[in-house]
Write a protein that binds this DNA or RNA. Sequence first.
DNA 1: TCAATATTAGGAATTATTCCTATTTTTAGA
DNA 2: TCTAAAAATAGGAATAATTCCTAATATTGA
Lengths: 133, 133
Amino acid sequence: MEAVKLKKSKQRDAILAFLKTRKDHPTADTIYDNVKKDIPNISLGTVYRNLAVLTEIGEIQKLSFDGSSDRYDPVTAPHCHFRCRNCGSVYDVDVDPDFLNSISLPKEGFPGQVEGQITVFYGTCEKCMDQYS
Amino acid sequence: MEAVKLKKSKQRDAILAFLKTRKDHPTADTIYDNVKKDIPNISLGTVYRNLAVLTEIGEIQKLSFDGSSDRYDPVTAPHCHFRCRNCGSVYDVDVDPDFLNSISLPKEGFPGQVEGQITVFYGTCEKCMDQYS
DNA sequence: TCAATATTAGGAATTATTCCTATTTTTAGA
DNA sequence: TCTAAAAATAGGAATAATTCCTAATATTGA
């Protein structure tokens, strides 16, 4: 939580750049595998540390789901996710802006100060549905 | 995923009974510590396995959050949670039924069949706010 | 009562993530 | 440009949560 002055790092830049090419919210491990193509001796610890830093400064967001590794999303603007309970994939969902507004900041009866909210829809993705029909 | 015929087990009953006494969505470890008072030689693996079974049959729900152990909630009726980003506590939130309806089942544009949704509000709980003011 | 099958305790194994340390890189200022 | 302080790194060890394994036990329906 201390204010730390960031120094530039090509590892961090590469991680963020890679993340921005992807729409599927990759895990730290996937990011590691891919960034390694450019920086062969990058370490997984470095990936995790930089993802934490980027999350802290609000450049990206971390998504946690039941039963799988954390995923990282380069889009911090409000949006929702859809997660397949069968294969674990996570997709962005373009919901009606009105809907976003309606859930964005609620009224009262909260046991604290609300700073944000996360909505995740879950179900079966089309790929998995095709597979069992 | 196979259909398995459940046999009764006092361990499972005790786990569910304990969970129903709590409103704070305890972790497997907390459940273990408490059920151990009645069944001293119960094992943590048994706790995890039964929580998984109970989740699978829809008796309880499992809640996953960033950076902490999974938590278990004996209430499966639709409701929302509030999580303190400072201390990690998870509270139930009684939201307006209209609000619940409004988020309950959305329209279209989803990459699959929606079976449910989870909304988590996050922020700073009152206890933590008091502490820093 | 018996046999089939689910469940258990206990502990080993796995997985994701964090932490540690010596070294390297970046940065701001002289 | 040179230098010293601070941040960042690689590599690997350590940790924490959870799952898996196995032999023994409990439950069930016939």
